[in-house]
């Protein structure tokens, strides 16, 4: 793994792709070593908001040395990001976290599940899996017909949409799709809200398959120093010795069996 850094980046483009959901490309060297499931810290420019905001890597373009994030306006920091225009200088901390184990998908039936703002990391993941010869089934779960990233995902696998209100695709959540369309999985890779991840953990356990899930927690440092972002683990980890893994460095991606959520 390469060295982490806080570096300047430039906004290449930004557009709103669904209500409150923004799609932004940065020109940054961090793209060199960025992988699916990892994240970056984006700093608000406003000096009162000091901490970097953790945002997943949605897509990497190594040739253009650029990185894409897709985020929802959730508070003051992301509200500020949404005002950034092409050419805006920003500061990024990265690349952070472990990322998804793309190799574990080799020769297996892989299903990717993204819930809401957990969909963005699935794009780079599908891309890396495809590059490694694994075509995944991708199940993005949305609230309603305000879809985003669907066309992008379709480039790298079979996409089966779920919506809570049934306006598009299967009515229900990502697991409703699994059951109703009788999708078989040997490995699941997922990101989304905690109730969805809990359901996936239970589903994987019941089916006796492996699920890699990406967790979220409030962070300060993002690099493993402050111990702010821990989650309970089933095994004693080498770092804390008290069954507390750091989501920012030991994660955010964990084997669902290894974490108590």
């Amino acid at each position: 793994m390469s060295k982490k850094a806080k570096i300047k980046a430039k906004v290449l483009s930004q557009k709103m792709i669904a209500p409150d959901i923004y799609d932004m490309w940065f020109s940054t060297e961090l793209s060199k070593d960025a992988h699916a499931g990892q994240f970056i810290g984006v700093y608000p420019l406003d000096g009162a908001h000091l901490l970097p905001r953790p945002i997943s890597i949605c897509e990497v373009d190594r040739e253009q040395s650029s990185l894409r994030i897709v985020y929802r306006v959730a508070g003051q920091g992301t509200a500020e990001f949404s005002t950034w225009k092409e050419g805006q200088e920003a500061e990024l901390l990265g690349v952070l976290g472990n990322g998804f184990p793309v190799d574990e998908g080799k020769g297996k039936k892989v299903v990717l599940m993204g819930g809401g703002i957990g969909i963005p990391p699935m794009l780079q993941l599908a891309k890396e899996l495809a590059a490694a010869g694994t075509e995944a089934t991708i199940i993005p779960g949305y609230r309603d017909d305000k879809l985003f990233l669907k066309e992008d995902l379709e480039k790298y696998g079979r996409v089966l949409v779920a919506t809570e209100d049934g306006s598009v695709g299967t009515k229900g959540n990502v697991l409703t799709v699994m059951n109703e369309l009788q999708i078989e999985a040997e490995v699941i890779m997922a990101c989304g809200p905690m109730p969805m991840l809990r359901a996936i953990k239970a589903y994987a356990q019941e089916k006796g398959i492996t699920a890699y899930i990406s967790l979220e927690e409030r962070m300060a440092c993002g690099v493993g120093a402050c111990l702010g972002c821990v989650c309970k683990t089933t095994h004693k980890d080498h770092h804390s010795h008290v069954n507390n893994a750091r989501i920012c460095t030991d994660g955010p991606v964990f084997d669902a069996r290894e974490v108590e959520i």
């Binding site: 009162a48 908001h49 409030r218 300060a220 111990l227 821990v230 989650c231 008290v242």
Partner: peptide, 17 residues
């Protein structure tokens, strides 16, 4: 070894945390 407190353990505030 001490396990520490439950999460959330950090919160940003104006000009601090």
């Amino acid at each position: 070894p001490w396990p520490g407190n439950p999460v959330p353990r950090v919160a940003e505030t104006h000009g601090g945390m």
